[in-house]
């Protein structure tokens, strides 16, 4: 094995588990021991990654508090070392990690899911949305097979806890509010319009409809689907109402007839 590779193995083992033979491969000075010098790298490794987690999950950080966030961060680094060239994606497994780590505080994993979705919406790709005019060009007969493409930032999450309310209270510093679990999961829509990220809760049929759009279902298939919640005669009007709301929020980027 090359000397370079051998050295890199020792250093990585040091960073990842503070063990191994790296001490034999570095020198200290009169003033600063090899141990102190190596500790600078071990600390930098931990703190840089935990800072990146905190940047992407400010509310998870607040809910856990500094000490627990740090301790969980250390365990997370060991469980999911970064595999991407960009530190932006280092936190992608935090929801999974927290679900296991804090099984009796499920709100934490849900907060992670919510914050990661906001993060994804923030830098999702820019696609120009279509306006109401585009809809007016669709001939009545074509509506049956009409399909829609949503903006890449759109995500739909089902949340059992009052995570968006907790997030807003932390973000706006309006004081602590208690965790609350709903009887049923509530669907939430996350999206970005121009440079601003938004979220709102969805009625159950609108949530079903938007998921159906994502799956590529047509207008008539969506109308059939929402009949589970509304009267058949009223379904097309209901779905057309959703579509006009989505158009107004610039959520639709293409119509496919």
């Amino acid at each position: 094995m090359s000397e370079l590779l051998e050295l890199q193995r020792s250093m990585m083992q040091w960073l990842q588990s503070e063990s191994g033979d790296i001490h034999h491969k570095v020198l200290g000075t009169e003033k600063v021991s090899a141990e102190t010098r190596l500790a600078i790298y071990a600390n930098a490794y931990r703190y840089r990654l935990i800072d990146a987690l905190s940047d992407n999950y400010p509310s998870v950080h607040t809910l856990l508090g500094d000490e627990d966030f740090y301790n969980d961060g250390v365990e997370y680094i060991a469980a999911y070392p970064s595999q991407h060239f960009s530190i932006r994606y280092f936190g992608s497994h935090l929801e999974k990690f927290l679900a296991k780590q804090h099984q009796d505080t499920a709100v934490l994993a849900e907060m992670a899911r919510f914050e990661w979705a906001l993060r994804d919406a923030f830098d999702a790709s820019d696609t120009v949305s279509v306006g109401f005019e585009a809809l007016q060009t669709i001939k009545p007969a074509a509506w049956v097979a009409l399909r829609f493409t949503l903006h890449p930032s759109v995500a739909c999450l089902n949340l059992e806890w009052n995570v968006p309310q907790l997030w807003a209270a932390i973000e706006n510093e309006t004081g602590q509010i208690p965790f609350e679990q709903a009887e049923y999961p509530i669907p939430w829509l996350i999206w970005r319009n121009a440079l601003k990220t938004y979220y709102r809760s969805l009625a159950v049929d609108e949530a079903w409809a938007i998921n159906a759009v994502m799956e590529g279902k047509s207008f008539s298939e969506i109308c059939t689907g929402v009949c589970e919640w509304v009267d058949e005669a009223y379904a097309p009007e209901r779905v057309a109402g959703f579509i006009s709301t989505w158009l107004a929020a610039d959520l639709i980027t293409a119509l496919d007839v």
Binding site: S2, E3, L4, L7, Q8, R9, M11, M12, L15, Q16, Y41, A44, Y45, R48, L49, A52, P81, S82, Q83, H84, F85, I87, F90
Partner: peptide, 25 residues
């Protein structure tokens, strides 16, 4: 510098050993 090994990225600017092997590499 170097910054990781075997697919793991340490996201740090780690110094290289100053050897002819490293120069060539």
């Amino acid at each position: 510098c170097w910054s990781g090994l075997a697919g793991v990225n340490a996201h740090d600017l780690l110094p290289l050993p100053y050897t002819p092997e490293a120069v060539k590499h």
